[in-house]
Design a protein around this nucleic acid. Structure first.
Lengths: 182, 182
DNA sequence: CACTGAGGTTAATGACTGTTAACCTCGCGG
DNA sequence: CCGCGAGGTTAACAGTCATTAACCTCAGTG
């Protein structure tokens, strides 16, 4: 069962992804949930709170599960596969969340932005360690840029998406692997 | 010499890229240009006009120069190189423009949105033809998804960018080629 | 049964924003 | 020297938005 709070957070994330944080009104969010504007304040402290909770939970989830899968892998090569699979799965099943965490962090207040940025950097670092084990000739900065480019590739799903999910999954995974390993 | 109009368009695009169309006020744009809010209306018909002109000019420029370079190439392989070089050059020298054309088309009115969308699709198609010549086993839809994934990779520049421009250029170009050619 | 707190409602409020109006200034062609 | 248009200015306006206030309903409990 999904609670009203979860429903509101999901709905808000979807709308933020479509039209941007400032392009969505609390009335829009309420309406999409079947309640009306000010009712949101029974569950959240304000519109900014919706974005904050979305972004914190998304970035935590990416980092936690990413770390878990890397640690469970036997070697660097299968760790990379596991990371790619995880990220592409997440992007395909939650396109709105991927879009929001990619774009809307600049609408956060300073404190939350710092918190989210740190988590995102830690997630990038999980990837960077694996990539540098496979390609020791890359320095830290280059590896980081390469990983962020791979994210751009994997996160392109929401903007194209005319393929079946399995086809998209395998296309993106293959492309990401080629891009990162040369 | 850059005219006042060009200065305003550039400034607006940069702010739109940073905070999104709805997150920027006409006062912000004017202030960043050294004039004040309503003065913009001496040069443009309104805030929406700024976004429209930015997006139309960006998408036209990508398509025109992309077509030119592909047509000037001897074979498919060098055509792909030329397209990659062009796109990565553009993304590196105009990060704000790339971000705006990627994100803010949804803030356009229906007519302009349709116009820009068509141009973007034509640009994608230029790439798709080249890619399918090099990888005839790909169907149209798969090739299109692959090209959009490559755009995501190349357009990641504005979000990472801790490398020198030449290093970034060659990193992204190599990654895009590997991703597209497997 | 009384009552209370959770979760709604609509109306009001104050801040902000895009746009327009009214006015100023000054370089320049006749 | 005069007029005027280009490109500024500030003030005013109407609309929208986030947030708060005041009020309603009702399931569940002492």
């Amino acid at each position: 069962m999904t609670t009203r709070q979860e429903q509101i957070l999901d709905t808000a994330a979807t709308l933020f992804a479509e039209r941007g944080f400032h392009g969505v009104t609390v009335h829009d969010i309420g309406e999409a949930c079947g309640i009306s504007g000010p009712a949101l304040y029974k569950h959240f402290s304000g519109k900014a709170d919706l974005l904050r909770q979305s972004l914190v939970s998304i970035s935590d989830r990416l980092l936690d599960e990413g770390t878990r899968r890397r640690d469970a892998a036997d070697d660097a090569s299968s760790a990379l596969d596991a990371l790619i699979d995880w990220h592409v799965d997440f992007a395909l099943s939650h396109p709105a969340l991927i879009v929001v965490q990619e774009r809307e962090w600049s609408s956060l207040d300073a404190e939350a932005r710092e918190r989210v940025r740190r988590t995102q950097l830690a997630y990038i670092d999980v990837w960077v360690q694996v990539v540098r084990e496979l390609r020791p000739e890359l320095d830290r900065a280059t590896a980081r840029a390469a990983v962020q480019a791979a994210f751009g590739l994997l996160n392109s799903t929401p903007h194209s998406a005319r393929l079946s999910a399995p086809a998209m999954r395998s296309l993106l995974a293959r492309m990401a692997r080629s891009a990162l390993l040369g």
